[in-house]
């Protein structure tokens, strides 16, 4: 049986490979991101020539000055793709990692903005990723903007969200229109169930595709060499997703 995490990793891998998006030669993956890490390892194991900088691994990245060097590299435009999440994400692709209620999060406090306020603007391509797909996460308007999805034309910005992947669906983001379009729903979901679980307005085609399962070659790679690479850093994740591998 295909695990939801395997399907999400494969969906992310397809988004990374999208020929219409800016090239992904150098991808950085943050510490709390096992599924994006799995997607990147999958592409590497299948022979895609991408450079991976894994921030959580002492030897998984080229940095000898921690994240200071990561941000310097990104500032120059030398990180092509980054993943961001959010306690809240809205229909204009704004993300909120600060909290809800009054500043700085009197109702619910999220961990903080980390590098998002910088990375979202200086990175040519961002994939938004959040497993929880619910009206409390996908909101009409975030309470606070950690990092904006859109910027006025005079603000220096290399790119924005390409897509949003959740535990239920894939959305594409159209920066010109400032709006998401439903691209596919995962097996078990429908256009209606996704609409009901999404707090922001978005477009959808008349017939919505189902998110493709990873093919046997991808599945074998995920369960073999990808798992082996991930085991040291994400032991809990590997035990949960691949208990018998």
């Amino acid at each position: 049986m295909i695990q939801p995490e395997e399907r999400m990793a494969a969906a992310l891998a397809r988004l990374i490979l999208d020929p219409a998006a800016p090239p992904a030669r150098h991808v950085a993956v943050g510490a709390a991101s096992p599924i994006p890490a799995a997607a990147c390892w999958l592409l590497r194991k299948l022979g895609t020539p991408i450079r991976l900088s894994l921030l959580h691994r002492p030897r998984g990245n080229p940095f000898s000055a921690g994240t200071r060097e990561l941000f310097d590299l990104a500032g120059q435009g030398r990180i092509d793709l980054f993943f961001l999440g959010g306690g809240q994400i809205d229909g204009q692709a704004n993300i909120n990692l600060i909290g809800t209620g009054d500043w700085p999060g009197t109702a619910a406090r999220f961990p903080g903005s980390f590098g998002s306020a910088f990375m979202y603007l200086v990175t040519p391509r961002t994939i938004l990723f959040r497993e929880e797909h619910s009206p409390r996460v996908l909101v009409p308007r975030v309470d606070f903007i950690s990092a904006p999805g859109l910027s006025p034309p005079d603000v220096f910005r290399r790119g924005t969200a390409q897509a949003l992947l959740t535990g239920k669906a894939v959305f594409r983001f159209d920066a010109a229109r400032g709006r998401f379009t439903l691209a596919s729903v995962h097996p078990g979901e429908t256009a209606e169930s996704v609409r009901a679980a999404t707090g922001f307005a978005y477009d959808a085609p008349e017939t919505v595709a189902t998110t493709a399962d990873p093919d046997p070659e991808w599945l074998a790679a995920l369960r073999g060499p990808v798992r082996a690479e991930m085991l040291e850093t994400y032991p809990e994740f590997c035990r949960r997703v691949w208990p018998t591998a």
Partner: peptide
């Protein structure tokens, strides 16, 4: 100076 941050509510605070 630093790029980015513009449009973030961090600035207002």
């Amino acid at each position: 100076p630093l790029r980015g941050i513009l449009g973030s509510d961090l600035l207002a605070h």
